[in-house]
Amino acid sequence: MRDRTAVFTVFALNGLALGSWASRTPALTEQVHASPGVFGLALLGASVGMLAAAAVSGRLIERAGARAVVAGSTAMVAVSLVLIGFAPTVPLLAGALLVIGASVGMLDVGMNVAGVAVERRLGKPVMSVFHAGFSFGALAGSLAAGLAAGHGWSPARHLTVAAVVAVLVLAVVIRAVPGIRPGHTEEPVVTPARAPIRRPVLWLLAAVALCSAIAEGASSDWSALLMTVERGVGQGAAALAFAGFQLVMALTRLAGPVAQRRFGPTRCLAAGATLAAAGLVAAAAIPVAAVGYAGFALAGAGLAASFPLALSLAGDAGKRGDGTGGEREIGFVTAVAYTGFLGGPPLIGGIAQATDYNVAFVFVALIAALILPAAVAARRSRRREEAAVMVGR
């Protein structure tokens, strides 16, 4: 098996796990007898786990290699799926969600480091294709969850089957995942050997990923409510806004390498930010349901490249002369971006409660538009770093 196929499969497994348990939240709420507010606090455990794990994953991958971290974290994801399915109380469910959040956070960094390694071997951008695998995996997990619920499967039965499938697929692909423990014998190629927190270019790339995470999370969590509350469509029809957003994002990511080779990463980020902001403003400002669906589809297309490109550029910023490196840089950008998934949804919910969903999504559009200046500033900061190193030599 080629490493490219293996990494794509790992991304899809991550998405499959998310789609599997997140789509069973109604059944899980009933299983632990939780009110919406209490269940929301339990869900917070997943976000906290993701953020904490992402912050330390870079150094762990430097020591053990991406392959070992991908294998261990995917196995942890499988175990935590079973724990979620069998959790009888809110505290136990919160603990299981904390474990799966930490596992997914570690897996995210590991699989993106492996993706950067494949990009370096191929000499062309393919990170957006890997992230398309995540999107398709999440869609597949959601569809499977719907089938399981429709046939009366309990979360325990369904998530146990999902865990077994994940482990079996992992066993098939793991040997082809790149990331044997690096030797780290050389310094970075064109960057000073500084901690990620001291490098402006990484903060700017983290800003790109953060804005993307907030906009993506808001579109995923609140698009259906905008359509039902502000546009008056039924719940079933409102769900199509999220489905369209995810589907268009996945398809656009498949076409990402062609656009990146032709226009470059900064232009792709700028164009995507403009498209996403325009789509979100249209969905919020024009009180027509059809425009809402089209707006969220445009937002999916515009945001498709932001997160994968930010991580790819972060990995490139840490590249060493021997072709390794970038683990800590990817971990840093991912950790900052996860604060968007953690704080974005309640922020948007607070704005919507104080005003309405239309105003809230105009705010989301402004956040998406900030990707453009952050991307341009990141490119300039990177060039200054390169120039400083060349002068030092």
Rank of each mutant, 00 (worst) to 15 (best):
E327W: 10
A250M: 07
Q353G: 11
V172M: 00
A238T: 04
P125E: 05
A297W: 06
G236T: 12
L298V: 03
A195W: 10
P265I: 04
N14E: 07
L372N: 13
V10T: 07
T266S: 12
M50F: 07
R393M: 12
G302T: 10
A294C: 10
L168Q: 02
F130Y: 11
L298A: 15
Q246P: 00
G183C: 15
A305T: 13
G392E: 13
A132I: 02
F263K: 00
L202H: 00
S219D: 01
G115C: 09
G150R: 08
A132Q: 02
A387F: 06
G326A: 09
D356N: 15
N358W: 03
L247P: 07
T191S: 12
A374G: 01
V79W: 08
A310W: 03
L44I: 14
I174A: 06
L251I: 12
V77S: 01
V126H: 05
R253P: 09
A206T: 02
G137I: 08
A314M: 01
P308T: 07
V38L: 15
L168I: 13
V38E: 15
V129H: 04
A237I: 04
S381Q: 09
A317Y: 03
S312I: 04
L240N: 06
P188M: 10
G49H: 07
A207N: 03
F136V: 12
R262I: 00
I174H: 01
V69C: 11
D356P: 03
P196M: 01
F11E: 05
K124T: 11
Y338K: 07
T339G: 13
Y338R: 09
Y293I: 11
S20P: 02
G179V: 13
L168R: 05
L202D: 00
I286F: 10
A64V: 14
G105N: 10
D356K: 04
P346V: 13
N358F: 00
A193G: 03
A278P: 06
V190I: 08
G331D: 06
M1P: 14
A71R: 13
V7S: 08
A314V: 01
A209T: 03
A42H: 13
F332T: 05
G133L: 07
L92A: 13
T334R: 01
V161M: 12
Y293A: 08
G344Y: 08
A290M: 09
A213R: 02
L168P: 03
A255R: 02
R121W: 05
